[in-house]
């Protein structure tokens, strides 16, 4: 069968959602940010909520997230996205509000804002991309950098005695009564991508029903920061990140399913 016979509008099974803008993503080749952006926009499209959703962009690699997702956006200062989201959501409880934050943003400089927004049970959704490193500023140690892992500020590997160990903020916030749905996902393979998309849907549906705060951590790669090829970085992530940051739901419908 000729390819031209296949490539016809009636045979279309997958196309990038129009809710992603035409701008070329500013991310490195193979970076999970692009996939996560697209999944969020696919769910927004499927739920038909483009006209009711406002995103909060972080400081970090995703600082320009608003260039790529075709929804209204507010750009927050470093770490402050949950507070910014709180301000919007409190004045517009009927709209959808989400933050999109990296590990330095959410788990270091913005720890206070993260924990208190979770504790208040703000009806927002937090998308947390954990790649174990400060990507945009050049690969420095993040709160999530693994023990022994090299970064530009831990050139001989993270020494937990001197620098403290990596910590799992996702498990921490799952303990707070305000969080409704807490899960950890990845987007490096087709199966995980499909699961991650389901998680995004659950989170935004929960927001629709005012259930409390939903929090999705995506363990993702940073091939530039880790100094690997994109494909190798995904393998390294499976072998090194996943044992410390295990995949799966931590809290479902307000109940802990995993400690």
């Amino acid at each position: 069968m000729d390819i031209k016979e296949i490539i016809k509008p009636e045979n279309l099974v997958y196309k990038r959602t129009p809710l992603m803008t035409d701008a070329t993503l500013s991310y490195c080749p193979g970076c999970g940010h692009g996939t996560i952006h697209r999944l969020i926009m696919e769910v927004v499209e499927e739920m038909g909520i483009q006209q009711e959703i406002i995103g909060i962009a972080p400081v970090g690699c995703a600082v320009l997230a608003y260039e790529f997702m075709d929804v209204d956006f507010t750009e927050a200062a470093h770490g402050r996205a949950p507070a910014v989201a709180t301000g919007i959501k409190r004045l517009w409880p009927g709209k959808f509000v989400f933050t999109y934050q990296g590990d330095g943003d959410l788990a270091a400089i913005g720890t206070g804002e993260t924990i208190h927004a979770c504790n208040r049970g703000e009806n927002i959704t937090i998308f947390f991309v954990n790649n174990g490193i400060y990507g945009m500023t050049g690969g420095q140690m993040a709160p999530t950098t693994l023990e022994g892992m090299r970064s530009s500020t831990t050139p001989y590997g993270r020494n937990s005695t001197a620098m403290g160990p990596p910590y799992k903020i996702t498990e921490m916030i799952a303990q707070l009564p305000g969080t409704y749905y807490v899960t950890r996902q990845s987007v490096h393979k087709p199966g995980p991508v499909r699961k991650a998309k389901k998680a995004i849907r659950i989170a935004l549906e929960a927001q629709k029903e005012n259930k409390g705060l939903s929090f999705i951590e995506f363990v993702s790669n940073c091939n530039s920061g880790w100094k690997m090829t994109p494909v190798d970085s995904n393998i390294w992530m499976e072998e090194n990140m996943f044992p410390f940051y295990p995949m799966g739901d931590i809290k479902v419908e307000g109940k802990l399913v995993k400690n």
Partner: peptide, 11 residues
């Protein structure tokens, strides 16, 4: 810090 950023979002 949180209150001014809530204000930023809300504004």
């Amino acid at each position: 810090i949180a209150s001014i950023n809530m204000l930023y979002g809300a504004a």
